[in-house]
């Protein structure tokens, strides 16, 4: 976990230096704001990982000498199939088309988005078994 943390914090440091230099040379606001955003993108998850990495034992994937059985067991629920990503995608498709061709498309768009949101939630409550 520490390597991951260092990677993200390294990204933050890189953009912090870049951002200071950019602001110093250009005094331009939008680019500086975006570079600050890039710093946050690295520092927020990076510091979280670093904080945790000092409070947990190295995971098997962090240790060079780990054996395969050390990672044995269930690692997560992976749904085998679900229609709801497709329904949600089509809902957003209709939503952007509504912005171009007419607001009447909002009706099927929101219907699909709400149906997909409910479907996603129900799947999750059932533990991922579709």
């Amino acid at each position: 976990m520490r390597t991951e943390a260092r990677l993200l914090i390294g990204v933050a440091i890189f953009f912090a230096i870049t951002g200071v230099g950019y602001w110093f040379w250009s005094s331009e606001q939008s680019g500086t704001a975006m570079l600050v955003g890039a710093v946050l993108l690295g520092i927020v998850p990076g510091s979280y990982y670093l904080w945790w990495s000092h409070r947990m034992k190295p995971r098997p994937e962090d240790r060079a000498d780990a054996t395969v059985p050390e990672g044995a067991g269930v690692i997560g629920a992976f749904p085998g199939s679900s229609i709801w990503p497709f329904v949600m995608g089509m809902g957003l498709f209709a939503l952007v088309l509504a912005a171009v061709f007419g607001l009447w498309l909002l009706a099927p768009a929101f219907a699909a988005i709400f149906a997909a949101a409910i479907g996603y939630t129900r799947e999750s409550r059932r533990g991922g078994t579709v």
């Binding site: 054996t67 395969v68 044995a72 690692i75 997560g76 085998g80 199939s81 533990g127 991922g128 078994t129």
Partner: peptide, 19 residues
């Protein structure tokens, strides 16, 4: 090292090799 049992394709927990 092999997997204890295959993970469910119709959803459910996936497993790493165990034994």
């Amino acid at each position: 090292v092999g997997v204890g049992s295959p993970a469910g394709t119709s959803g459910g927990p996936a497993q790493t090799p165990s034994a």
